[in-house]
Amino acid sequence: MSSTETQPEDTPIDHRTDLLRQMLRIRRFEERCAELYSASKIRGFLHLYVGEEAVAVGVTHALSEDDALVSTYRDHGHALARGVPMDAVMAEMYGKATGCSRGRGGSMHLFDVRRRFYGGNAIVAGGLPLSVGLALGDVMSGRRRVSACFFGDGAVAEGEFHECLNLAALWQLPVLFCCENNLYAMGTALNQAQAVTDLALRASSYGLTSWPVDGMDVIAVAEAAQRAVEGVRAGAGPCFLELRTYRFRAHSMYDPDRYRDKEEIERWKQRDPIDGLAADLRAHGELTDDELSGIEEGIKKELDQAVAMAETAPVEPVEDLTRFVYAERPR
């Protein structure tokens, strides 16, 4: 893609407050999930996105409703930012019939066909081939849609990653590869997994436009994603964004997090994307304390309601256990 044609416009100011609200909404949702997990209301694996919210919010900001999104097992932030209703996500965490996957997927497998949210995939790198296929189908049908795919730095070690970047570049498919480089794949640091740790450089070797982005700065992410999406949509071929970020919490609720030193975590927390944007908005007189507590209140209300609805929602009948194993056919 030619970057001169697609210079980003400044993100309008009202969007900045909205981006803050969206990040806060994900943060508060997940804090509540952690509590509900301790209370055994949510079970299975739970992977929190705390610290990485700017990535999901910034990227989805650049997508249009028609575009597709493929996610990982760390998918709450992606789903919420994409517009999957919070009550449907919470109900899914509860394993209820009203959940966005009817209780069959849980935290790691949120889906929403209406939002073109192709789901949380719990096999590392397993979503990349899907995104290539979504894009291929669009091209073959003459549709100008973008398929965005989130995956972690750990996925870069899998064969599927390399096969997909090559295929997408070879066929010039409209895929936006969004690598959430949080420096760790479970307990394995990036420099213990990769001989070359510059992931954007790696991607460019396949013939993709690629560049690193400060994933702790939602404005930077939104701008980069917007530029990338414009190119991809215009038919310039796939694009790769390396979103440099950090997870503040352990890999999952099972992880004792023995492999990172506390100082490193603290250093990254200084760059909290939510605090950063809030401070910036305040400094520019764009956000008052009242406005912020208004946002917090709105989120709390939505969250309380989502939890209340999940608590009382029905579960799928056991008789329906084998429903959806195959497509339901008209009789």
Binding site: R43, V315, L321
Partner: peptide
């Protein structure tokens, strides 16, 4: 095991 991918919800997983 019942012939379905294993579902998340506790009662469904148990039944499977």
């Amino acid at each position: 095991t019942v012939e379905t991918p294993i579902p998340y919800a506790q009662h469904l997983e148990r039944a499977a």
